[in-house]
């Protein structure tokens, strides 16, 4: 999927994550802000990369502000941001690229 605009999903509430994605030229660039970055930074990064890979996003600049989100919440926020950035708002591939 190609990102055509900058998009954001999620909130700064506890147990949530706010994810911003925008188009980039050279692969995936991720920045993470989190109070638990030492323990979970690597896991957050892996989840984001895995989710983008499944969605077929090859170039993106991603910013994650983590407020203690579970893996499944983080995945939901990344997917939402990506589909928003691609201008897609229906017929989502539930159970396919979204898993």
């Amino acid at each position: 999927m190609k990102l055509i605009q900058t998009a954001l999903a999620g909130t700064l509430e506890s147990s949530d994550a706010q994810v911003t994605v925008e188009n980039a030229e050279n692969g995936i660039e991720i920045s993470i802000e989190s109070n638990v970055i030492n323990q979970y930074g690597r896991q957050i990064k892996e989840t984001v990369l895995e989710t983008l890979d499944r969605l077929g996003v090859e170039n993106a600049r991603v910013k994650v502000v983590d407020k203690g989100a579970l893996d499944c919440t983080l995945r939901a926020r990344v997917e939402c941001a990506v589909f928003r950035a691609c201008g897609v708002d229906k017929d989502y591939p539930w159970g396919g690229a979204i898993r």
Partner: peptide, 15 residues
């Protein structure tokens, strides 16, 4: 509405 659906989907699948 879209954000709610993504979080619903993963909650149904994983929780």
């Amino acid at each position: 509405k879209d954000a709610a659906r993504f979080s619903l989907y993963h909650a149904l699948k994983t929780v």
